[in-house]
């Protein structure tokens, strides 16, 4: 999975050769999502000793246009988990409605049972895998953050193909390239998670959001961040501003628009 949602789910050109786009003209009566339209970029998350931190910026891009600048891409589920969405925003909104109706059904049908993050992740992975098997994918990559059945931190990823994996730190899209190496310095192994404090995890995520804002052209300096712990439940802040930016490094950039010294 790379930082271009347009490339997700397609055979890689470097492996399979150039892609034949002529299909796009056919007026098939059944319309499936063949490419994402309005997209969200990276989602980042880190596990720490008693919970998970997850963050995503508030931007929804239309190609290279920063189209919507106040889109919440962290969606809470039953006040115990957070799903962070990357990829197509309309598919995100569909999934959000789906999860809301699931939550309603769950709450009505019995007392004392509630789906934890692990259950939610399993459910979402089945939804995504079913849709890819119908060749009608939901064009997203998601991170599910919360606590599992034993109240241990839980963090796992699902994408449009139904692929799932879990790791102490995760990042989707551009973040998989830029942020993940930085986050792995915090916890590169499940055994290290117990040594990571909440403050350390938050700091690392905020630092990565900044790096991504520097380098990812489809990113924004306003973002959402959520902390999920057993004690505090879900603390979701949806309108944060990146702090402590330094653009001094820009002076040293050569190439691109700055080939000529002024």
């Amino acid at each position: 999975m790379n930082h271009l949602p347009q490339a997700w789910g397609r055979p890689r050109d470097d492996v399979y050769g150039p892609y034949d786009a002529s299909y796009l003209q056919s007026g098939h009566p059944q319309t499936h999502t063949k490419s994402p339209i309005v997209t969200g970029t990276s989602v980042l998350a880190v596990k720490f000793q008693d919970g998970v931190v997850i963050a995503a910026d508030n931007l929804a891009s239309y190609g290279s246009l920063a189209r919507f600048t106040d889109v919440k891409r962290l969606r809470p589920f039953n006040s115990k988990c957070i799903v962070g969405f990357g990829g197509d925003v309309s598919d995100m909104q569909y999934l959000d409605r789906l999860l809301n109706s699931l939550d309603v059904v769950e709450n009505y049908s019995s007392e004392g049972h509630s789906l934890n993050a692990k259950n939610l992740h399993t459910y979402l992975s089945k939804v995504m895998y079913k849709r890819r098997s119908e060749i009608n994918p939901l064009w997203n990559q998601m991170l599910v953050a919360g606590l599992d059945g034993d109240d241990k931190p839980f963090l796992s990823s699902i994408d449009l193909l139904g692929t799932t994996f879990s790791s102490p730190t995760l990042a989707t899209g551009f973040g998989a390239h830029l942020a993940q190496p930085l986050l792995r310095k915090v916890a590169d192994d499940e055994s290290k998670v117990a040594g990571v404090t909440k403050e350390r995890a938050i700091e690392a995520v905020k630092e990565c959001m900044k790096v991504l804002f520097y380098r990812d052209a489809r990113s924004l300096d306003r973002y959402s961040i959520a902390i999920i712990t057993k004690e505090g439940g879900v603390e979701l802040k949806e309108d944060e501003q990146l702090e402590g930016q330094s653009w001094a490094f820009a002076e040293t950039i050569r190439g691109y628009g700055r080939t000529q010294e002024v």
């Binding site: 347009q6 490339a7 789910g9 397609r10 055979p11 892609y19 034949d20 786009a21 002529s22 299909y23 796009l24 003209q25 056919s26 499936h32 999502t33 063949k34 490419s35 994402p36 339209i37 309005v38 997209t39 239309y62 190609g63 290279s64 890819r132 098997s133 060749i135 994918p137 193909l161």
Partner: peptide, 29 residues
Amino acid sequence: PTLASNPAYSFSKAPYNSAADNKEHAFYP
């Protein structure tokens, strides 16, 4: 060019490949 440019896809600008009888699907599962 269609995919590389942007998602603001226009049908009229899509490259037309008359030789292609079999239409390949966009999504590779």
